[in-house]
């Protein structure tokens, strides 16, 4: 039977025919490569799942020892003492006050810089200044911490003699300067996305640059600018080293930036520096603190992401 078949096939395939022939190996190889690339893309999903799993599973154990209600309402935070109290409000106050100071610095400066770069500066200034601002956000935060503790605090103490060596104020100011590039670059992107025709309309009506910027461009880019603020807040809330170095690590329920206080992040650093046995309540506490932090930044990030896509869609 095989003999009859052979008669129908030429003795040797021409080179072009053999090249065109279907080769299974080629397709198998393609499939394998695609699967490997897909798995690499899935790593990021597993990272998120890993974060959620670790934070939740350790926090669940923590909340078996500490009722959620106490966690939210207690006004003392002494997890490593014999008389342990777990009031997250104490750490939250440090986080909120320092982030508040940072925003007071970053929002006006970041907004003005964004308006200036987008509406006033020529392309040459823009192209030189933007990379320099990027460098500002590339400085390691530990170096900013050193700067806040040993340069900004002594400087502020000349004007405010009663300022303690560790305080939320100087940490917040330095943190604000650190997040200026985040705020200004996102806000500027939003303003540049406003169509030229709107500006041309305003100029045609006789507006000046300043009037065009404040009355046409900023309102049109409003949701994008808000996104810039919110992503700035999210960075400030998650910032660790500046606060661990310059704000002190003593839990302190205060709304006064002139006092030292620990933030959620600084507390995690403080515990990690000590030698806590795996599985102790103190060890689980940092995961509960981390979960709180993660939830806060998640809300801000989702809000910021939503606002950003909103301005992108409109034009």
């Amino acid at each position: 039977m095989s003999g009859t078949l052979i008669t129908h096939i030429p003795q040797a395939m021409s080179p072009s025919e053999s090249r065109l022939a279907h080769r299974a190996s080629r397709h198998v190889k393609e499939k394998i490569i695609e699967s490997i690339l897909f798995l690499a893309a899935l790593v990021s999903v597993f990272t998120t799942l890993g974060i959620v799993y670790i934070l939740v599973s350790e926090s669940v154990v923590f909340f078996r020892h500490v009722p959620v209600w106490d966690f939210l309402t207690d006004t003392q935070w002494t997890p490593l003492f014999d008389d342990a109290h777990f009031g997250i409000v104490v750490l939250l106050s440090g986080t909120l006050v320092s982030s508040g100071v940072a925003l007071v610095v970053a929002i006006p400066l970041g907004t003005v810089i964004a308006i200036y770069l987008s509406e006033f500066a020529g392309p040459r200034i823009r192209e030189t200044v933007k990379p320099m601002l990027e460098l500002l956000s590339g400085v390691p935060t530990i170096v900013y911490g050193y700067f806040a503790l040993l340069f900004v605090t002594p400087l502020l103490q000349k004007f405010l003699p009663e300022l303690p060596g560790f305080n939320l104020l100087s940490a917040g100011i330095v943190m604000g300067i650190m997040i200026i590039p985040t705020v200004s670059s996102i806000a500027e992107d939003a303003m540049r996305a406003v169509p030229m025709s709107l500006r041309e309309g305003a100029y045609a009506m006789g507006s000046t640059r300043f009037q065009t910027a404040t009355r046409v461009v900023v309102p049109a880019a409003f949701s994008g600018i808000m996104a810039a603020y919110i992503l700035g807040i999210s960075r400030a809330v998650g910032e660790t080293m500046i606060l661990a170095v310059a704000a002190g690590m003593q839990p302190n329920l205060t709304w006064n930036p002139m006092e030292p206080a620990a933030t959620i992040t600084a507390f995690i650093v403080q515990v990690a520096l000590g030698d806590l046995p795996h599985g102790s309540v103190g060890y689980q506490t940092i995961f509960a603190a981390g979960l709180t932090l993660m939830l806060m930044t998640l809300v801000f990030n989702i809000l910021g992401y939503w606002l950003r896509t909103k301005y992108r869609e409109r034009y």
Binding site: V45, T47, T48, I54, L231, I268, G290, T297, L298, N301
Partner: peptide, 28 residues
Amino acid sequence: HVIEINISNLAGVPSIVYGLLALGLFVY
């Protein structure tokens, strides 16, 4: 879509949270 949203979300996670992930997962 899930992978894309997830990546942009991961970029906003505070770095100390990665430390907690590593402490729970890699270290122990």
